[in-house]
Design a protein around this nucleic acid. Structure first.
Lengths: 226, 226
DNA sequence: ATATCTTTAATTGGATCCAATATGGAGAAT
DNA sequence: ATTCTCCATATTGGATCCAATTAAAGATAT
């Protein structure tokens, strides 16, 4: 995982250190983070020249970065009219969580037999941070908590997919970030999940995770509507 | 769907006609098709200049196309060393089919209540083509058959995901294309699937689809090893 | 006053150019 | 003969340049 935190989805960026990452990837990471955080709102046009001078690079790496983000689904591009931040809506939100349930339960199921105590400790430590960290850090830390457990499943394609879904979901998180009661519930479910992992109880863990994700989806949906 | 056939995965290319597709996307489609077909073998380096002059464009659209394909997982890029066709292995193959089962069963479950007779007719017609078409066309037609049914689910993100998984799986298909007995079995399962769809029997359809995908995975795996 | 046509500015798409890096081979030293 | 170093070449990454398209403002006619 990159030091930058939440902005790592996609296939080949898990292990890559910062030194062999070109400007295109750097620009893509920065833009992705800003889109996920909501700083760049849905529909907002992304002018190549503006981004280029803001980041101190030429238009070229910006153009390639926009292509990457297009393939990842974070930006939409129209020929001769440029790029804009991809739209979000309730339908997409529901879809994301529906897909998350399947993908993450699968990853967890395969991860549990491979879980080491040290990995569970690491997840628990992240959960500790999560409970004290400022609300803006929730998305990134929450993702790290989940991914830490899933990584044991040893399925790179599945992990990349989950990472992308997490990032996609986090775009909606910011809208609902006010609801503190959700955070409390989430923390409790995370603790229950950790306990089930300690017991190596795959069935229970999956069931906790399923409702955890489903409830998150519902909470976000309610916040999006309200 | 694009006229080129199988080469449409990703988010926003389903409805886009050829006129508002820039050179980057055209190059990406052509390269993707060649990678899926196996014409470009795993590990083969993809020189920008070579591709550019082969396609009669400059290096620029090639570079952007490679970024797209990188995000889609078909090419790997190393800084200052360029792009190469992504590796394939038995592990990845198994992973793909595991993910396909979940994603496609979900899509089918949501699609069935929305299926119109005309859509089922269309799928059946594609199956007809499938049974007479030359073996090289199997991958593209098979994908069209499945997607035609799934499209009724009305979940763009899920459909894009499935499309990508299909393309990824088809890279392995070519290796096993000789096994004629698999094609026969596949045809029979497709017919059973259509029958279940006609009855609007979601449970049966899902079960058929699950074993259909699992058997395909097993057959490919056996061929890959053998 | 409104609608339409024309012109102009802004922006993207594509091509070329230059610098930085990696690859491969020739030659020298052991 | 083998290995190491150095140099030439190929290739990528990034910047600049030009053309094509779009959006918008302004002018003109109804």
């Amino acid at each position: 995982m990159t030091a930058s935190g939440s902005g790592d989805s996609g296939q080949g960026r898990q292990t890559a250190g910062a030194r062999d990452r070109d400007q295109t990837q750097a620009v893509a990471d920065r833009l992705r983070t800003r889109i996920i955080s909501g700083e760049l709102a849905a529909g907002q046009p992304l002018r190549q020249e503006t981004i280029a001078e803001a980041y101190g690079v030429s238009r070229m790496p910006v153009r390639e970065a926009l292509r990457l983000l297009q393939a990842e689904g974070f930006v939409e591009m129209v020929r001769n009219r440029g790029a804009s931040v991809a739209a979000i809506d309730a339908r997409d939100l529901a879809e994301i969580h529906e897909m998350r349930v399947l993908a993450e339960c699968l990853a967890l199921r395969h991860a549990i037999p491979e879980l080491t105590e040290s990995r569970i400790d690491r997840a628990e430590s992240i959960q500790g941070e999560l409970e004290t960290a400022p609300i803006e850090a929730f998305g990134a830390l929450n993702k790290r908590f989940h991914m830490t457990l899933y990584e044991a499943c040893g399925r790179p394609r599945l992990l990349a997919h989950i990472s992308l879904l997490h990032d996609a979901a986090d775009r909606y998180l910011r809208i609902a970030i006010r609801q503190l009661d959700y955070a409390v519930r989430s923390d409790r479910e995370h603790r229950e999940l950790l306990a089930a992992c300690r017991r190596r109880d795959a069935e229970a863990a999956q069931e906790i995770l399923r409702t955890h994700i489903e409830e998150a989806g519902k909470a976000l949906l309610a916040a999006l509507r309200g």
